[in-house]
Design a binder for these strands. Structure first.
Lengths: 344, 344
DNA sequence: GTCCCGAACTGAAGCGCTTCAGTAGCGCTT
DNA sequence: AAGCGCTACTGAAGCGCTTCAGTTCGGGAC
């Protein structure tokens, strides 16, 4: 016996297929007795509705697609957490696909989503070109999380990287630091804005002559090299890293050089990933409200369903999470005059 | 204009719907000229086949479902990497769903998969009860990765936890350690076997009187408490932790107590997660071949499609990854007699 | 010229469901 | 006793596709 259909149930229960359909979906129409019979038969036969037939007939799917740029980054997991719950509650199925970093794969995944008649789609950190996204969004309500787009067809949710950078610098400033350097993220998502935010904040605080940028991408190795670059000139008292991975790279390098964090140098990261908390030394970091971003994504999509046609852009506020990698600047503490013994 | 259908294309191209269907799927039947016309019209209209209609009519879906127990654990990301590529190549769509740790949600996700007529399903670290999995597997070819099951309906892929534990103990033994304790994972997946492997290995090496087990789940906090438990008796020279999270918890606690790793005590983890490498102190760990496990999962499912009916069980070999958290036992080094100054 | 055959194409059934216009029957009113 | 409005139900159309039994036709074999 293959999968039972509505007709099987109808026959067993001695009613029409239409009535079974309505009853199983909780619509009124059947009397109490009949309803019980139908439900009983369905249960006994192990009936599972055929989604294809259902979607075809009803011209709707109650499904939404989520495209993940990358599964390894804990950023995605948090966003997805925020995303799925509201949809599940509203009776939507959430199906996810991954693009594996390849635009071709991402594009084909979007085709699949469209083929399945997904009623809405969320793209988290897509690497796809803007034009493809735009074309897709013409057909399916789409929200993009974690990537800035110029398109006015999709809803966009990002955090204010510039502001986050400014908060980081301000935090260090408040601790008495003046010689604050930046370890750069190069062309990574958000890196440009974070660098800009750093420069602006330094200027605003009158620290223009202390502005120094080193490094160049989102890897730990490049970060270590960046630290060396900085030290070749002079040791900063604090470093603002473009993200947590970079910050950890710096941490390791400082340790290798015999510099103590936060006694000799303070380090602050960005993203507040699980990395930041798991390290033996807790990393002070700038947090993006990732779960919230997910929830907001769900809300925006729902609004679309309810008729909103204008695209929305939400820029969320980042916040500071203090841990033990930042402390008062050496000079502003009681003068211990502890010269770091750089062993190389 | 809504989504174009086969009929739209047929009309524009002046042929029958059947011919369009066949042509778009690459079947022979149309002449060169006609074929070009059809393809051209389809392209121009932006045709995307309706998956629901297609699946309904063809009684197949070319789709496979992947249930993720949890998105935060890097374990899953690696397995998925191994899984998706072979399927994409074979022209399958891979759609993922998450159970969010709740068996109820996992069960409903499986229903969704079945509703969509997925031709095969891969469960990665499911938390669902065995009976539900078994019931599901009666209807859809299923492979389970990372969890042992007694059922003979599903294919199972796990690593040999017992062996892995044995390798860990042997590694410590070879470094001269004798007083080797175990930080337990309680009821977590694999924990029981790892504990058993530890005990067996200790016996085999004639270290029966050194067997000590503390802790009790897969959390860092519980691990720290486990360390205290151990130290209340006497400090071991080495600790085998049930997984990397536990190992890191132990690392932190040892540091807090002023004990140096690996000078005073060696620590080895399990899973070789990204955690192990990212830590300032590289964690020696036991690696499961995760990507391979994913690839194997894909292969097993394909075999099922081709007619294999007997369930397969694959137990893969774990390997040791040495980093800097393990070193020669203090006693077997030049006698420094460095008593740890336990500050609490 | 007839026959046959393959290439190129068509028509219609039907996948399992939803939807909607009906219909039957019953208890009320007036 | 006719009419009304309910509730409880049925029948049939049709969603967009695949599939398969046919149909048409040009041309080579004899």
């Amino acid at each position: 016996m293959s999968r039972p259909t509505l007709d099987d149930i109808a026959e067993h229960a001695g009613v029409s297929r239409a009535l079974v359909s309505m009853t199983l979906r909780g619509l009124p129409g059947a009397g109490d007795e009949t309803r019980r019979t139908i439900l009983g038969v369905a249960e006994r036969l192990g009936y599972v509705p055929n989604a294809a037939a259902r979607n075809l007939a009803s011209r709707s799917s109650k499904a939404i697609g989520v495209l993940l740029g990358e599964l390894h980054n804990p950023f995605f997991a948090d966003v997805v957490d925020g995303l799925t719950a509201p949809f599940e509650e509203a009776g939507f199925h959430v199906l996810m696909g991954t693009g594996l970093h390849r635009p071709r794969a991402e594009r084909s995944m979007l085709e699949t989503f469209r083929g399945y008649g997904m009623e809405g789609v969320v793209l988290i950190g897509p690497e796809l070109d803007e034009h493809s996204i735009q074309r897709f969004a013409m057909h399916v309500p789409t929200v993009v999380i974690g990537r800035t787009l110029r398109t006015d067809l999709v809803d966009v949710i990002v955090n204010d990287d510039r502001r986050g950078a400014s908060i980081a610098v301000q935090h260090l400033f408040d601790l008495g630091h003046r010689d604050i350097a930046h370890l750069d993220g190069g062309t990574g998502p958000g890196a440009v804005l974070r660098r800009r935010g750093y420069v602006d904040a330094m200027r605003r605080l009158g620290l223009e002559e202390h502005i120094r940028v080193a490094g160049g991408d989102f890897t730990a190795a490049r970060a270590a090299a960046g630290v060396d670059e900085l030290l070749a000139d002079r040791a900063p008292t604090a470093v603002f890293a473009a993200n947590d991975v970079v910050a950890v790279g710096a941490l390791e390098r400082f340790a290798g050089l015999g510099l103590s964090v936060p006694d000799d140098v303070s380090v602050i990261g960005y993203d507040n990933t699980s990395l930041a908390m798991q390290l033996r030394i807790g990393l002070t970091s700038i947090d993006q409200p990732r779960v919230l971003m997910g929830r907001l994504g769900a809300a925006l999509l729902r609004e679309r369903f309810e008729g909103r046609t204008l695209a929305a852009k939400h820029v969320l506020a980042p916040t500071l999470v203090r841990r033990s990698s930042t402390a008062a600047a050496p000079s502003s503490r009681s003068h211990k005059n502890r010269k770091p013994n750089v062993r190389n």
